[in-house]
């Protein structure tokens, strides 16, 4: 099942500039692994070495944070959409 994943600006270098990509998987962990196959380097930007999501990156399933669902094991259904939302800090200078 192909799921739409929204890519934030800082990671678009890895997706050849695409802001939306599609990946295959039954749950979010599988989607991330599939994204890594298509866009090498993406996984390490959002996951720690042990595969857990980094603490300054959130993934939203539709409008809900997956940390409050089953995290990377959250299952997906057709027409679900994922968004990767990293913390951003800029404001001043």
């Amino acid at each position: 099942m192909a799921i739409k994943v929204r890519i934030p600006t800082p990671l678009r270098k890895l997706t050849n500039g695409s802001d939306e990509v599609f990946a295959e998987g039954r749950n979010i962990g599988e989607i991330i692994n599939d994204l890594e196959k298509s866009f090498p380097g993406l996984k390490e930007r959002i996951c720690e070495g042990d595969g857990k999501l980094r603490r300054f990156v959130n993934i939203y399933l539709n409008d809900e944070d997956i940390r409050f669902k089953k995290n990377l094991e959250t299952e997906l259904k057709e027409n679900d959409e994922l968004s990767i939302i990293p913390a951003i800090a800029g404001g001043s200078i």
Partner: peptide, 20 residues
């Protein structure tokens, strides 16, 4: 609650050198 910890040094460009 949203972001538990800041990114480690150097991992995320947090300065305006990235442009805005």
């Amino acid at each position: 609650c949203l972001y538990p910890e800041p990114p480690p040094k150097g991992l995320v460009p947090s300065c305006q050198e990235a442009g805005v």
